[in-house]
C-alpha cells in the first residue's frame, strides 16, 4: 500500500474531472506519490467540446480585459510562488533553479498580458491597394489549439506552450506527460482566476494514447508540439492532420512576435471609398 500525497484530476470546462476511463497513473516525487489522470480518447472529445465553448467566450473578451485577466494570473503565481518552488524542488530542481523558473514565469505572463492588446497592431496593417478601396489585414485567433507541452519540469516552459495562443484569443487544450504535476497544480490557479471556463483545459496522460484522436479531430484547429517526437509519431500526426488541412507546428518558435503568428488567421477586408 503506497501513501498517496495528492490526487489530481484533469481540469476541463472550469471543473476538476476524473478521466471517464477511471484510469490513473502514479508519479513518485521525493518518496511521495501523486495520482494523475490518464486521459482517454473520450476525455479528449469532451475537452474539445469545452474548448469550443471556451473559444467563443475567450475570443469575444475584449483585449483590455484579456490583458487584465492575464496580469492577475501573474499576481496569483507570485502569491503562490513558494508552493511552486517547493513543488519544483520536489521534482529535484535546485532552489536557485526553481526560483528562477517561477520568476521567469511571472515575467513572461506579464509580457504576454501586455501583448494582449497590442498584437493586432503588430501583425496587421492597412494595405495600399491601387484602386479606390480601403483594405485592411487583421487577425482572428485560429480557434481551438491542442498544445503538447515539453518534457522538462518547468512552469515556465508549460506557460510558453500556452501563453502565445491564449493571448491572441485561442482556447487551449494543454497536455502534459512528464510535467503534469506542475500543470495540474497550475490548473488550480487558473480555476481561481477570471479565465472563462473552457478557455484553458489542462490534461495529463500518455500522448501516444490520444495522438490519433487529437490529430484527426476536425474541431481542433491547430496542433502545437512543444516536444520533439520520434519521426513516426510526427509523421502520423501530420498525415492525420492532412485529412482536414489541420495546421501542425512542431516546436514552434516562442520568441517575441514569432510566437503568436502560427495561431493567427489573417483576414483581409476590402471596402470601396466613395460618396
Amino acid at each position: 500500500m503506497i501513501d498517496i500525497k495528492k490526487t489530481y484530476k484533469n481540469y476541463v470546462g472550469g471543473k476538476y474531472v476524473r478521466s471517464e476511463s477511471g484510469k490513473t497513473y502514479t508519479k513518485e516525487l521525493k518518496n511521495e506519490f501523486y495520482e494523475l489522470p490518464l486521459t482517454s480518447k473520450k476525455d479528449i472529445r469532451d475537452a474539445v467540446t469545452s474548448s469550443k465553448d471556451g473559444y467563443k467566450k475567450w475570443s469575444s473578451t475584449t483585449p483590455y480585459l484579456r490583458m487584465q485577466i492575464l496580469y492577475r494570473l501573474s499576481e496569483m503565481i507570485e502569491g503562490n510562488k513558494e508552493s511552486y518552488v517547493e513543488l519544483l524542488m520536489d521534482h529535484g530542481l535546485t532552489k536557485q533553479k526553481a526560483n528562477k523558473d517561477i520568476d521567469e514565469s511571472i515575467q513572461n505572463i506579464v509580457w504576454f498580458a501586455g501583448l494582449a492588446d497590442k498584437w493586432e497592431q503588430l501583425a496587421g496593417n492597412l494595405n495600399p491597394v491601387s484602386e479606390e478601396y480601403f483594405n485592411i489585414s487583421h487577425q482572428n485567433p485560429i480557434g481551438v489549439v491542442f498544445s503538447l507541452s515539453g518534457s522538462n519540469i518547468s512552469l515556465n516552459e508549460l506557460l510558453m506552450s500556452i501563453l502565445p495562443s491564449l493571448t491572441v484569443g485561442c482556447s487551449v487544450i494543454s497536455y502534459s506527460e512528464e510535467n503534469s504535476v506542475v500543470a495540474l497544480k497550475f490548473a488550480e490557479d487558473i480555476n481561481n482566476s477570471d479565465f472563462p471556463s473552457g478557455s484553458l483545459n489542462i490534461l495529463s496522460g500518455k500522448f501516444e494514447n490520444i495522438l490519433d484522436d487529437v490529430s484527426k479531430h476536425v474541431e481542433i484547429n491547430l496542433v502545437a508540439l512543444h516536444k520533439e517526437l520520434d519521426n513516426d509519431g510526427l509523421k502520423s500526426i501530420e498525415e492525420n492532420a492532412s485529412e482536414s488541412v489541420k495546421r501542425v507546428f512542431s516546436q514552434p518558435s516562442i520568441e517575441g512576435l514569432s510566437s503568436i503568428l502560427p495561431y493567427l488567421e489573417t483576414k483581409t477586408v476590402w471596402h470601396p471609398k466613395g460618396t
Binding site: 494595405n127 491597394v129 491601387s130 483594405n135 489573417t266 483576414k267 483581409t268 476590402w270 471596402h271
Partner: peptide, 19 residues
C-alpha cells in the same frame, strides 16, 4: 474567410494578402 469583400467582389492587389 481569409478575404472579405464588402460592397465589392473579386478584387485583387499585390499588396493585399490572399489565402
Amino acid at each position: 474567410a481569409g478575404v472579405v469583400w464588402a460592397n465589392t467582389f473579386n478584387k485583387f492587389d499585390p499588396s493585399s494578402p490572399f489565402g
